[in-house]
Computed example of a mutant assay.
Amino acid sequence: MKFEELLDERGIELKYVNDNDFDELKGKAIITNKGSFTRKLLLNLGFEDFHPVSKASIEEAEQIKEMIKEKDIVGFGGGKAIDVAKKIASDLNINLISVPTAPSHDGLISKNCSLYKGSKRETIPAKYPRKVIIPLHLWKNSGNLKKAGICDLISNLIALQDLSLAEKERGEQFSEVYKKLSIESVKKVLNCGDEKELAESLILSGLAMEETSRYCSGSEHEVERLLENKINEGKYLHGQLAGTGILISAKVYSLYSDKLKDLRFGSENFFEYIRNLMKKKDVYNFALLPLLDEKFKPEILKEVSEVRPERFTLWNVIDSRNIDFERVINEIIG
């Protein structure tokens, strides 16, 4: 099915802009990141009434929801703002406009949001945006934010390998349509030449998560969640930590290939395959950085099997408590 048809079926309008003409957002409830960039941008554009988000949490969503009246909601900025906007729009059943100011994640249009409830992050059903506005001029100079988005897309390969494992070990069944959308998003990003193609890659990945995020979030995102809690203080982007998770999951798949046979991708050379793809897209060293952080210790990863045990992945077959993660990390870093 053509990309445009996928959006039309879901009532999603996609618009690309090359300047800061966001007049159509006036009079709407704008939710944005508390960081200085999006806040300063909105103020410079004459928007004074908006709701800044410091944490993607259910608590913040509830607080902002109390202040929102019946009008369209805009998620303007990064993943935190867009996820909170998704939750509120879904709860109030009102229109959502998504304006991702950087290509840092694949949740631009996904029908779920990732929010903290207390100290634990949960994936919560939401709704599709009625409209997505892609500011290409902002995306062009997005640097590490773009690298984070590319990592988030490549992580689909780990998620698909985990699905294959769940099919083999537990007899679970998954949609071929969503698996195809997930892999197509990776193929497109590996060969994309401009921001529009990158946007299509991220949107395809979002569509693959229509029924569940499992098609794009597996054992690598469980590593991401663990590292987010253990070493991150706003220092690393979501996609960057997902990239770190890609390397760790792929390496464990390869090290335990004798126990992980006959899957979608050959386990024995899985790490080399993944590493080469990440090097091709210039995100390999970017994903390595959290492993070089002074706060990171390999033994942290012993807990990863406990992060999301209800979602069957690599960590349900290979118990993280029994893995020599010092060896894993040393082999990754080289």
Rank of each mutant, 00 (worst) to 15 (best):
P103T: 01
E331D: 13
K147V: 08
P298H: 04
A61Y: 07
N144H: 13
E59F: 11
N285Q: 15
K26T: 11
V132F: 06
K140L: 12
K196P: 01
R264T: 12
V189M: 07
S142T: 08
E13T: 10
E299R: 13
K120A: 10
I124P: 02
I158R: 04
Q240D: 03
K297Y: 12
K71S: 11
H221I: 04
C113M: 10
Q161I: 05
S57K: 00
V307I: 12
F286M: 04
K26G: 07
K196W: 08
A287L: 08
S175Q: 10
S54F: 11
L165N: 01
F296P: 02
K168Q: 09
I31Y: 03
Y256E: 08
D293I: 09
L7G: 05
N144R: 13
L6K: 11
I274Q: 01
I332N: 06
L204D: 00
C216E: 11
F265L: 10
S114W: 06
K80I: 00
N95D: 14
D72R: 12
E5F: 11
S254E: 02
Y284R: 09
K127I: 11
K80S: 14
E169C: 10
T123K: 13
Y16N: 11
I203M: 07
L165Y: 07
K26D: 11
F174S: 03
L115E: 01
E176T: 15
A126P: 00
A242C: 14
S320Y: 03
S305M: 06
L163I: 15
F325Q: 02
V84K: 05
S119I: 12
V99D: 03
R214A: 14
L108G: 13
E24G: 05
N285K: 14
M209N: 00
S254C: 10
E169S: 12
D83P: 06
L92W: 10
G245Q: 04
G149H: 00
T38N: 14
E184P: 05
I82F: 01
N18W: 14
Y16F: 15
G75P: 01
K230W: 06
L153F: 09
M278T: 02
D162Q: 08
A29W: 02
L43Q: 13
I134W: 01
A29R: 04
I332C: 07
K71R: 14
K86C: 08
S320L: 07
S185N: 07
G35P: 03
R264F: 14
E197N: 06
L227S: 00
L96P: 05
I109Q: 01
S205F: 00
R275K: 15
E303P: 05
V132T: 12
G245D: 06
E200G: 05
Y236D: 03
D91E: 14
G11L: 08
H105E: 09
Y284G: 03
E60S: 00
L237M: 12
L247E: 06
S182P: 08
K2P: 09
E228W: 00
E200W: 01
E233T: 13
I246C: 10
F50Y: 07
Y253R: 05
